[in-house]
Design a protein around this nucleic acid. Structure first.
Lengths: 217, 217
DNA sequence: GTCTATATGTAGATAGAC
DNA sequence: GTCTATCTACATATAGAC
């Protein structure tokens, strides 16, 4: 029959290059604006202005404000999880794992990416908002918890005598310290003068968390 | 002259008991609602409904949304700073200070208060929002930094060879971990099953931060 | 896919009666 | 001090031309 030869309504043609660029621009703008004031502090108008497109277009591609927020968080979360798992695999390949190597594999990719420019810095603040607000538990569970579990398993293998809740708490301390390091740099400066060099920051953070985990084990 | 006998326009009569109760109810409600979704996630209407008063009254007593937010954060900050300084003084009176005693004096009051009911739990989340958002730097500087400096000075005395920026960073890690412990209890549970007993939580947090600080010193 | 225009709701702030 | 009513602005979302 005739209508069988038409494409189903759910099937869509491959997006044009221009469309892909527009979507990316909208997501970049969402990231910037959502990072500034969280979900409620952002408006689709601000995002549209930042992206240089019309408001209706933001809605069209984003699928509503909540879904746009979800997409914005999820986009870089995949890249981040991938980098962390790669770093873990590389550490495993290099020799027997120790606690420091596991923590470094988890913490280093984020700090390294945060130095590449404003995008990942904005993203760090966005993640901090997501972590604080219980409305976004689902996003955390989907975007961050699976990889966190992988690393927690490794830590658990290295410290087999420590109950898992204790290790989970210590791991949360590590994550929150990492976010604080990126997002509240100004507060560190306010309390203690100059900023430290980036590699030193990573080294300090890893030492801090390693010692902390061992102390509670 | 006649007008000298009239009270200046800025001077106001002592508030009635009923008025004080209303103001307290409005601040309690602000705390609850602001803690739920941050500054932008809250509306004066929600706060009015929570307090059981009219919207105009919230505006009247709060002096606008921004000032109400400020007042809400500042109210408990004073009580918290006082409890922390008292704990520090008590520790000093009990004998020579060590790092663990200083950290305990800083961390214990918050965790103890957070167990007294929902008010301080809400407040913890509110403080987490304030810490993330750079718009509230001024509030942080006014409400929290002075007491933080006092404790940082004590830590600096105990670890005199460590540069202050390093100690400041470690102290921020401790603060962020403390906030995470209170606000992301659900995430700890998601990653590691049951919740730990409160005294154990405090003990672990103090051990973690003490070991971390020593490791970076 | 992109734009203009608009529908519909709700935000913060205020005026004025009591 | 408290309440009702309302002003003005801006939010999200959608409809429909191109």
């Amino acid at each position: 029959m005739f209508f069988m030869t038409t494409v189903p309504l759910t099937r869509q043609r491959a997006p044009s290059k221009r469309s892909l660029e527009t979507v990316a621009r909208i997501l970049d703008a969402s990231e910037t604006v959502f990072a500034r004031g969280g979900f409620d502090g952002a408006s689709l108008r601000d995002i549209a202005a930042e992206a240089g497109v019309q408001v209706g277009l933001v809605h069209h591609h984003g699928g509503g404000k909540a879904e746009l927020f979800h997409k914005t968080v999820a986009r870089r979360a995949e890249a981040l999880s991938h980098a962390r798992r790669e770093a873990l695999a590389a550490a495993k390949a290099a020799g027997p794992l120790d606690l420091r190597a596991v923590l470094t594999a988890f913490l280093a990719p984020y700090l390294r990416l945060a130095r590449t420019g404003t995008h990942w810095l904005n993203y760090a603040r966005l993640v901090a908002y997501v972590s604080v607000d219980p409305r976004w538990r689902g996003i955390c569970a989907e975007c961050f918890d699976p990889t966190a579990e992988v690393f927690l398993d490794e830590i658990s293998t290295l410290l087999p005598d420590t109950p898992r809740p204790v290790l989970a708490a210590g791991f949360i301390f590590a994550v929150s310290s990492m976010l604080a390091l990126v997002t509240t740099q100004w507060r560190v400066e306010a309390l203690g003068s100059d900023t430290l060099e980036a590699d030193i920051q990573l080294d300090h953070l890893v030492r801090y968390c390693e010692a902390g985990l061992r102390a509670t084990a």
